[in-house]
Design a protein around this nucleic acid. Structure first.
Length: 671
DNA sequence: TATAGTGTTATTTTT
DNA sequence: TAACACTATA
């Protein structure tokens, strides 16, 4: 592959810190993979001394594939390409003794955190969902700013924040008692460790000869610290990012880290990639003129040598039904005229709920489509249940997992029993599991409840011992055999079909776990049950065999989900004030991020770009007349408005038709 | 312990 | 409005 001069510079600058400002479609992944190749082939780096960090497993996987195409397996041995969180997890796993952790620690996902917080704040917040969410965010932000509960308490002003700091402290203590870590801890603990322990720091710094970071604009404060600590004084690293595509500030990303880098490393080499290989010149010009309305730290102007291309189109429709029908009939027409494939078309939107109507219309027209997002494999109830069993199996102190599954399937362990158990455990500072086995409990519970409770805990204990003896596979087999989850699914599911699906998910998960435990999965080493369960929470294995079937389907997804992808023909729907920019962003005076969101959407398009908006829209029960999005205005002369009203939607015709028939009938009856 | 009735709330989401 | 979570009730 031929690199342009800027890309070449980015690849060849290896003697110090390097920031690559990679505009949309400028070939940044190409630069990273080529740089890894260059480091190995021309700079004498061993693969195991190179580390590349991304944000998602998907991105890591893609990078591995692309590097794999350049090299053979042998040369790549030891090369690390992982996510921030997996990297942190690996550091913790190797240093757990110094960190004072027990090896079987549990990883808590957002849902676990939430239910823990809920139980900790039963008396103070009393299940107020809004407040609970605020608390959750507050703790996350304290953690990403690397504050301990004690520090937070001192810094905090205002009554509510004081309460929150109190909860933070409780949360912290409880997590320790559970021997559990949350996702933020996976970054935070390595940072603190590397800061305070010189020996460990030097060991890791010498181990990592060169560090590459993708999507750098999405890093938060603690992730940046981790980078800094890992590269050390020598600062041999390359970060790649684009401040115009920073769309995750609501998740703690700090695009100002681009600027900080400039200050922290005075010899930072900044290289801009400004040639776009994706879109037509027209689309690019439109994107440039839109994003020019945002302030910039580093100015950059993308250009394309591709032909000018069509104007960007705006379709104004009557209402949201027309919007969907217009777009779908446009796709049908366009496909027919140009002999394209369905997968060349993407429908992008701000919020997930916008997809529903499009889904309906696509279905009516028998057009294959794919919606990205929605409930992922791991947020399905049946998978969460199984995971809870496994987590309890690897760490009995995990009360969260315990509570989720003690009575699922039914074991006649009701809320009263659990409440008494909770009280007992709380007084003695024990976990629910270990408390349930204590003799003293007899005074608080009647024989029957105690019996069913202990039957459960003893069973788990047996399985635990089995897996500790090295027979994890056998333990899992017994688990499946004895707890009759299948029956439970069939009893509780709304239909047989649903239950069948759920059971299929469960058995998929099982075969995966067994394969990982035995180590015959993609010639990986056998893993302990601890490792398998921890990695599953990080979702770091499932994706490996998830074949992305390249089916010919129209692609529907949110703007956020579209980042990094490209499509020949893009529809960006709902270009209205209140939707894009979203109302809450207008209220919070953060239209800039919405503009970047629109920018991301436009720069996905290779050939043609179409916007739609409605005259009227149903919202929260009422009918509103939205204003066109300010972004359409900003695109100015690059867009062409086409106002063509459709008489009626299919549905309106039908309902009106049947109303007329009913009317006729009633008239006939009377006469 | 199911079920109907009531209330609440409408962004983006990965690890 | 519609979808969801939660609660009172038989």
């Amino acid at each position: 592959m031929q690199l342009n001069p800027a890309q070449n510079n980015a690849v060849h600058h290896v003697s110090g810190p390097c920031l690559v400002l990679a505009g949309a479609g400028s070939g940044k992944t190409c630069v990273i993979t080529n740089k890894i190749a260059y480091l190995i082939q021309h700079c004498g780096y061993k693969a195991r001394h190179i580390m590349a960090v991304t944000f998602t497993n998907k991105a890591a996987k893609e990078m591995k594939e692309r590097v794999g195409k350049i090299f053979g397996k042998q040369e790549l041995r030891g090369l690390t390409i992982s996510t921030f969180h997996t990297l942190g997890f690996d550091i913790i796993r190797r240093e757990y003794k110094i960190l004072g952790l027990k090896i079987g620690f549990s990883l808590f996902d957002a849902e676990d955190q939430m239910s823990l917080l809920k139980s900790l704040t039963e008396n103070t917040i009393e299940g107020d969902k809004g407040l609970l969410k605020q608390l959750f965010c507050k703790i996350a932000s304290w953690k990403s700013d690397m504050l301990t509960p004690a520090q937070a308490k001192i810094l905090v002003t205002g009554k509510q924040d004081q309460l929150f700091a109190q909860c933070f402290s409780l949360y912290h203590k409880q997590m320790k008692a559970y021997n559990a870590l949350d996702f933020d801890d996976l970054i935070l603990m390595p940072v603190v460790l590397l800061q305070t322990n010189q020996e460990v720091r030097e060991r890791w710094q010498s181990e990592i000869g060169y560090l590459l970071v993708d999507e750098y604009q999405d890093t938060n404060a603690s992730q940046y610290q981790l980078i800094k600590l890992l590269v050390g004084e020598r600062a041999y690293f390359t970060v790649v990012g684009d401040d115009d595509q920073s769309i995750y500030s609501w998740r703690g990303a700090q695009p100002k880290n681009l600027l900080t880098l400039n200050q922290d490393f005075p010899n930072l080499k900044v290289i801009k990639l400004e040639q776009n290989y994706r879109s037509t010149s027209r689309i690019l010009r439109a994107a440039n003129i839109l994003i020019a309305n945002n302030p910039h730290v580093f100015e950059k102007t993308l250009f394309s040598e591709r032909p000018n291309g069509d104007m960007l189109k705006v379709l104004k429709t009557n209402n949201e039904n027309h919007e969907a029908e217009r777009v779908v009939s446009e796709i049908i027409r366009h496909k027919f005229m140009n002999g394209t494939n369905y997968k060349d078309y993407a429908i992008l939107y701000r919020g997930n709920h916008q997809s529903i109507l499009f889904e309906k219309v696509l279905m009516q027209n028998r057009i294959p489509y794919k919606i990205s997002g929605g409930t992922s494999f791991f947020s399905r109830v049946e998978i969460k249940d199984i995971m809870a069993y496994l987590r309890l199996l690897t760490n009995q102190d995990n009360d969260n997992a315990f509570l989720r599954i003690v009575d699922r399937p039914r074991r006649e362990i009701g809320s009263v029993t659990l409440e008494k158990l909770g009280l007992y455990a709380n007084m003695r500072g024990k976990s629910l599991f270990s408390a349930s086995l204590e003799m003293g409990l007899q005074q608080h519970l009647n024989g029957r409840s105690l019996g069913s409770l202990q039957r459960f805990t003893r069973w788990i204990l047996e399985l635990f011992e089995e897996s500790e003896r090295g027979n994890a596979v056998e333990a899992i087999r017994l688990l499946v055999r004895d707890y009759r989850y299948e029956d439970y699914l069939y009893e509780t599911a709304s239909s047989v079909k649903v239950a069948e699906m759920q059971m299929k998910n469960v058995s998929n998960l099982y075969s995966w776990i067994v394969a990982e435990l035995e180590g015959d999965n993609y010639n990986n080493e056998p893993q302990t049950l601890h490792e398998v369960v921890q990695r599953l929470t990080l979702r770091d294995m499932m994706e490996r065999n998830e074949k992305s079937v390249d089916a010919d389907q129209v692609q529907l997804m949110t703007l956020h989900a579209s980042k990094g992808l490209e499509f020949a023909y893009v529809f960006l729907i709902g270009m209205e004030e209140g939707l894009l920019p979203h109302q809450s962003s207008i209220d919070e005076d953060n239209v800039e991020e919405e503009r970047r969101l629109a920018y991301v959407g436009i720069t996905r398009a290779q050939q043609e770009m179409t916007f739609t908006l409605c005259e009227e829209r149903r919202q929260y029960g009422g009918l509103i007349k939205p204003m066109p999005s300010r972004f359409l205005e900003e695109l100015s002369c690059n867009v062409e408005w086409e106002e063509k009203k459709q008489p009626q939607t299919q549905e309106e015709r039908i309902t009106k038709g049947s109303a007329a028939i009913a009317n006729l009938r009633s008239i006939l009856k009377k006469s």
